[in-house]
Every structure is written in structure tokens, then in C-alpha cells.
């Protein structure tokens, strides 16, 4: 075989000049400029900016005079913030459990080759198409103590019936939960249903041959197989919970009193209502920390294992 030691650039009749590295694939790079700008400047830059300014004395306007952890100390000594965090924890816990259980149950029921699957699915999913504002306002009306659900039940004879979550500080978060679950479970059901449909038909055949009951097959065989779908659902629900804002604004406006305040609303009030920017930055940084706490185990589960595998 011929061994020639001519380098590519020594080829005297090279058909094309090699462009410099920066200009190679240039149309692709130009086309991606909006993405690069959004990812780097808006998302990354914006986040860093807010985190940095959360350590300043910014009030009416952002200014770089350092305050150390003062904003965070003020934040965590604020009654409203503590209530917000508690509310989010309550809402988050029940929303997570409720959405997963209801979503999976509905998906499993729909997966039983039933008639009218499309109709049921449409009914379960349509709330997801609506704005949280619409959802909040409808449920505010249904839960209206004088004219809504409570009144209907009382008129039916149970005069002692009492269900007025939106005016009862102790259970107001459950009033929000009813609306939140109503809107959000359809999505999870859809994802779960897609997951169930992705499971090999032969698994069901094998379970039938082995004489394992339907419910037992779901619990012992199917759910463990759907781990990735559950992880995805968990992340989606988690990210949604932290962002909880519109629903509260529409359904309760944070009331009664401050009993249904949530962190996102605290941030908005501090930044755009109270001209208390430093508090807003510190509170939103805490929200970021919450998301990171949710995401790190997920990222570890999703990507950490594969690298060593």
C-alpha cells in the first residue's frame, strides 16, 4: 500500500479551503443565536443576577450595597413567609400523593380496554387546557358558602353540613387542593396511560398464565416497570407545585388573612407590590433552592447511574 506523508493542506488541488473552526457549521450557529441568548443571558444570567442581588440592601431599586444574609434573616423571621412555606408543604405533600394516586388509578381503569375511553379521557383532561385563573374562579364559585355546594347539601336536608374551606384558615389549602387536583391530574393520567400502553403485552399474557390477579399484577409487576414514568411525573408535579401562584391569586387572593399565602405570591408582592426588592430576591432564591432540592435526586437517578453503567 502507498504510504504518503502529505498532510491534507499539502494537497495541491484541494477542492475546498478548510474554513476556520468558528465559521464551520455557521448557519446552524446563527440559527441557534436566539436559543443561546435565552439560555445564557436570560435564564443563566437572570438567575445569577437575582441570587447575587439577594445579598444586597435593594429596596425600591436594585443596588449593589452588600447586606450579607440580612435579607434571608428577615425572610425567615417573617410570619407571612413561614406561613407560605407551611402552606406549600401541605399543598405539595397532598398534591403529590393525590395526583400520583388519582392519575395512576384513572390510567389503569382506562387501560382496561373499556368502552368510551376517548370520552372519559376527554373529560379528565379538559381542565388541563384551562387557565389557573379560570380554575380558581370556578371553584371559588362552587365553594361559595351561601350559594354553592354547602348550600345545596343543606337544602337537601343535612342542615348541619359545613364545608366552607375558602373562609376557614385551617382548611383553606384543601380548598385550593380540590381545584389544583381537578386541573392537574388529567396530565399525569395521560402520561401514566402512555406508560401503561408502552408495557409489553406479553407481560400481561405471562401474568395471566401464571394466574396472578389484575390488581396484584399492577402493584407487583407493572408499577415497578413504570419507574421512569413515575419519576417524570414526580418532577412535573414538583415543578408545578413550586410555581403555584395563579390559582391562589384567583381563588383566595391569599386569604382569609394570610392563611393561603404561597412563596411565589410572597415574591411577587415583595418585588412588584411592596417595592421590597431584596426580600423578593431572597425569597425567589429560596424557591430556586427548593427546585434544586427536587431536581438533584432526579438528575442523579436519571443520569448519575448511566455514566457508571
Amino acid at each position: 500500500m502507498t504510504i504518503s506523508d502529505t498532510r491534507p493542506d499539502a494537497g495541491d488541488r484541494a477542492a475546498a479551503r478548510r474554513p476556520s473552526r468558528l465559521f464551520r457549521n455557521l448557519p446552524s450557529k446563527i440559527a441557534m443565536l436566539p436559543l443561546i441568548f435565552t439560555a445564557v443571558v436570560v435564564f443563566l444570567g437572570g438567575t445569577i443576577w437575582t441570587v447575587v442581588y439577594s445579598f444586597t440592601k435593594s429596596g425600591l431599586l436594585p443596588r449593589l450595597s452588600w447586606a450579607g444574609l440580612d435579607q434571608y434573616e428577615r425572610l425567615w423571621s417573617s410570619r407571612k413567609w413561614i406561613v407560605s412555606i407551611e402552606n406549600l408543604a401541605i399543598y405539595g405533600f397532598f398534591s403529590l400523593i393525590g395526583t400520583l394516586v388519582i392519575g395512576f388509578t384513572l390510567a389503569a381503569l382506562l387501560d382496561r380496554k373499556i368502552r368510551g375511553e376517548a370520552v372519559f379521557r376527554s373529560i379528565f383532561l379538559y381542565p388541563f387546557a384551562l387557565s389557573f385563573i379560570v380554575t380558581g374562579l370556578v371553584w371559588q364559585w362552587i365553594l361559595n358558602p351561601e350559594l354553592g355546594l354547602q348550600n345545596v347539601v343543606r337544602e337537601m336536608g343535612w342542615t348541619g353540613f359545613s364545608f366552607d374551606p375558602l373562609n376557614n384558615p385551617d382548611i383553606v389549602m384543601f380548598g385550593l387542593l380540590i381545584a389544583g387536583l381537578w386541573q392537574g391530574t388529567g396530565l399525569i393520567m395521560c402520561i401514566m396511560l402512555a406508560g401503561l400502553r408502552g408495557i409489553d403485552e406479553d407481560i400481561w399474557k405471562a401474568a395471566r398464565v401464571d394466574g396472578i390477579g389484575t390488581v396484584k399484577t399492577y402493584i407487583r409487576v407493572i408499577i415497578p416497570m413504570m419507574r421512569p414514568v413515575f419519576v417524570t411525573s414526580l418532577v412535573l408535579i414538583g415543578a408545578g407545585i413550586v410555581k403555584l401562584y395563579d390559582l391562589v391569586v384567583a381563588q383566595t387572593s391569599g386569604g382569609p388573612g394570610i392563611s393561603s399565602e404561597v412563596p411565589a405570591k410572597y415574591v411577587m408582592t415583595a418585588m412588584f407590590g411592596g417595592q421590597n426588592l431584596g426580600q423578593g430576591f431572597a425569597a425567589s432564591t429560596m424557591m430556586l433552592v427548593m427546585v434544586v432540592i427536587i431536581l438533584i435526586p432526579w438528575a442523579y437517578l436519571e443520569f448519575g447511574g448511566k455514566k457508571h453503567g
Binding site: S4, R13, A15, A16
Partner: peptide, 17 residues
Amino acid sequence: GQVWIKGRNVTWAEPSE
């Protein structure tokens, strides 16, 4: 390394060329 087609060094040429 290099690719030559019909006596022409096409290492950096576009596929269509």
C-alpha cells in the same frame, strides 16, 4: 488522513462536490 477521488483531494469538499 486524506480522501482522493479521481485524482482530486476531496478531504474538505462537500459531499455534493
